[in-house]
Structures are given as C-alpha cells and as structure tokens.
C-alpha cells in the first residue's frame, strides 16, 4: 500500500489507533464512523499506534479498508465498507482493550445494580433491553457490557438497534435527557442467560459462579487474547451476582415477570 498522506492518531479505550488514507474525504468518513461507533471516545494522541487502519478506493477493489496490513473488506460503495467497519472496530477494540473486558450483552440498571443479559446478535437482547427500559430500568447498552476490574459495568449507550421483520435495522433512541440512560458505572447485581422459546415459562435455575463464568466465556471478547485478565474480571462479577438461567417467552411479558422476580430476590 502506498504511503497515505492523511492521518489521524488517537487513543480509544486505552488503545493507540491510527487511521490513514490518501483521500481526505474517506478519512473524514472513517473518523465520523469511529466517533459514532465509540461514542466519541477518541482522544488525539502521539502514542505509537498498535492498530493501523488504512482506508482507500482503487480500481481493483472499489472502497476498502485494511487493518495492520491485512485487507479486511472491500465494496463498490462506501456505505458497504463503513457499515462493516463500524462493527469491526468495536469488536477489535473489545478484544484488545487493556483495562476493560467487553462482553456481548444487553445491560440495564435496576435499583442501583446492573443486570447483564449475555447474547450474540439476533438473540433478542435488544428487544428485551428495550422492554426493560420501558418499564423503568436504566439503559446501559444493547450490545456490550464493558466491565472493569472491580466488576462494575460501564455505560455504552448507543441507540438501541431494533431489527424489523424484513431484516432492516431501526435505531431506537433512548432519551438520555429523561434519565433513562446511565451515566456512571454500576456493580453487577444479576446475570441472566436466556433463550427465547415459544410459550416458555420462566423457570429460573441459579448457577454457581464457576458455571456462570463458563457460560459467559463464549460472549467474552478478550478471552482468547487476554485470558487471565478476562477470567479475573469475570470472577469478580460472578462472585457478587445472582446468576440465572431460564428460557423466556415474548419480551414484553417476560420483562414484566422478570422485573417482579428481580425485585423480590435482589
């Protein structure tokens, strides 16, 4: 790749990152995407970059981006590349972040304690998070639980992404001005592992901390890269939380039942 003439060096979630492009407009779009993706946590920096992203357009690939010298994706239109870059960047930061553990989970706050709902994309966690927020829970995230060494979860309040029946995304903006979105970290009070099943009844099974850690492993982004730290943080979370597993029915009904249950047991 030819030397890029435009650069932007910054730090986000403790990682030094560089964006490069020969095209100022493409670089601007990358920065704008990253600002949205990382909720504005981009601090300009002179630290040597650990992750270098190169963006460009050429006859062979159309629009493309590379990460540390490897072609990641290309597309004939810019939107195709930047949509993927948006997800890619968050996941890579989640995997490499030195002092936080990113877990795929929806998160809400209930009476000063956070509830984690681990799940992959398309598992219905956004729908459930939205229903809990509608019933008074504080919104933290519909995508990642960002955990620190104390076992506290930090807000990552992007607009809730709801998928419609035709597979399109419809962002649902939780109104931060009405105190629905969290602004400070909270200790984790409960972790809910749940799967949708038609007509399922809520039958909670309480897991032990080690069972909870094992079940959380597939959702823990840095588990392969920083295993020891991830496990230390997971343990801190699990030893202080109520860990529940249950199937669930439709989100609105389940949210009601589950909130009643949590109020009793927490």
């Amino acid at each position: 790749m030819a030397l890029s003439s435009h650069r932007f060096d910054f730090v986000s979630f403790g990682l030094a990152i560089r964006f490069e492009s020969r095209n100022a407009r493409i670089l601007e779009r990358a920065i704008e995407t990253a600002r949205r993706s990382l909720l504005g946590d981009l601090q300009p920096s002179n630290r040597p970059a650990e992750h270098v992203f190169v963006f460009g357009k050429n006859n062979e690939h159309g629009y493309f981006f590379e990460h540390n010298g490897e072609l990641i994706t290309h597309h004939e239109i810019a939107r195709g590349v930047f949509k993927y870059f948006d997800s890619y960047l968050r996941v890579r930061i989640g995997e490499h972040c030195p002092d936080r553990v990113f877990v795929h989970a929806g998160v809400v706050g209930i009476n000063g304690r956070a509830l984690l709902i681990p799940g992959n994309s398309f598992s219905g966690k956004s729908t459930l998070v939205l229903e809990l927020v509608k019933r008074g829970a504080t919104y933290f995230s519909d995508e990642f639980a960002i955990l620190d060494e104390r076992g506290f979860v930090h807000p990552y309040a992007r607009p809730i992404n709801m998928r419609t029946d035709d597979g399109r995304y419809r962002p649902y903006n939780v109104d931060v001005s009405t105190d629905k979105a969290a602004s400070s970290p909270m200790p984790v009070g409960a972790v809910l592992f749940t799967k949708y099943a038609e007509n399922a009844r809520f039958r909670p099974r309480i897991l032990t901390p080690a069972e909870g850690m094992m079940t959380l492993t597939p959702f823990t982004l840095p588990i392969r890269i920083n295993s020891a730290y991830s496990i230390r943080v997971m343990q801190r979370v699990m030893e202080n939380a109520l860990i529940i597993r249950s199937k669930r029915t439709h989100a609105p009904r389940f949210a009601e039942i589950f909130l009643q249950y949590l109020t009793k047991v927490l």
Binding site: H74, H75, G80, Y84, S87, H104, S121, N161, F219
Partner: peptide
C-alpha cells in the same frame, strides 16, 4: 458473534 449490521444485501461487504 457480532452483526455486520447489513440492512440491505448491497451493504454486505465482499470479503
């Protein structure tokens, strides 16, 4: 485990 957030097939990257 994450979504590429494609809302149209044309949004899906080539690689």
């Amino acid at each position: 485990a994450t979504s590429c957030n494609c809302s149209r097939s044309s949004d899906c990257p080539q690689i």
